[in-house]
Simulated scan of single mutants.
Amino acid sequence: MLNLTLPAEGGCRCGRARLRISARPLLTMACHCTGCQQMSSSAYSLSAAIPAEGFEITKGEPVIGGLHGASKHYFCGYCMSWMFTRPEGLDWFVNLPPTMLDDPAWFTPFIETWTSEKLPWADTPAVHSYAALPAFEEYEGLVAEYARSQA
């Protein structure tokens, strides 16, 4: 397993929007829902839940895209790369696709969600799998288990 070196920087495909993280992920995930499949143009999306105080935009002004719903999906306004998501009511973290970082080699999904919608061949090395989402009360234990696995 490769280690994440902090701070870590990254940005969109065209480079007009840049970001920096200075905190380790609380949890790493792969989401197989059809919405993520469509938005990522892939079999699933990847994300790392970064504590909000450890996340900053250093260049550019990402714009809201996607469905413009409760959770806000932010994109580069020029190349339209999906850069990060701020889930509604959960302001204490930002979901960052690890591929937005300049070096995403450290990333492995710890949980996978919405496996009920996954493509039959789309397997991940996630430790925990959920047909939909984990129950809200499960997250504290998952975050603690993930932290132990990274120590």
Rank of each mutant, 00 (worst) to 15 (best):
L27T: 02
A70N: 12
W82M: 12
T85P: 04
Q38I: 07
E140W: 06
P109G: 07
T108R: 13
P25Q: 09
Y146F: 15
K59G: 00
G69E: 06
E56P: 07
A126M: 12
S45Q: 10
I50P: 01
T124E: 06
A132V: 01
T28M: 05
T99Y: 14
P134K: 04
H73G: 04
R148A: 15
W106T: 05
L101K: 12
L67A: 12
E145K: 14
P51D: 07
S81W: 00
F110A: 03
E112W: 07
G54E: 04
S45H: 08
P125I: 10
L19C: 09
T58S: 07
Q150G: 05
F55P: 05
F55I: 11
G65R: 15
E117P: 08
S116V: 03
P109Q: 03
T99E: 10
H73W: 06
S45C: 05
W114G: 03
T5V: 15
R20S: 11
G69K: 00
A52W: 02
A8T: 13
G54C: 05
D123L: 03
A135M: 08
M80W: 11
S149P: 05
A105G: 12
A49V: 00
S129F: 06
L90C: 06
H128T: 01
A122I: 02
P97R: 11
P7Q: 10
A52V: 07
W82L: 15
L27I: 13
R18T: 01
S116W: 08
E61C: 00
F84E: 02
E140N: 13
F110P: 02
R20T: 07
Q150T: 05
A23E: 14
A126Q: 10
A135R: 13
Y78Q: 11
T99P: 00
D103P: 07
P62D: 05
V94F: 06
A151S: 11
K59N: 04
L133V: 04
P125L: 07
E145V: 00
L96F: 05
P120S: 13
P51C: 12
F136D: 01
P134E: 08
D91I: 02
V63P: 02
D103F: 04
M39S: 14
G15W: 09
C33E: 06
E138D: 14
F110R: 03
S40H: 15
M83S: 04
S116K: 13
L133C: 09
T108K: 15
A23G: 01
F110V: 04
A122N: 13
P120Q: 09
Y130Q: 05
A30R: 12
N95P: 01
A8R: 09
G10L: 05
Q150A: 13
A132T: 10
T108C: 05
L4P: 08
C31K: 04
P51T: 09
N95D: 08
P109F: 14
I50V: 10
P51Y: 15
S45D: 10
R86W: 03
N95A: 06
A48S: 11
F84Y: 13
I64K: 09
A49K: 01
L67K: 04
R13E: 11
E88C: 10
T124S: 04
A48Q: 01
R18A: 05
T28L: 03
S71R: 01
G60C: 04
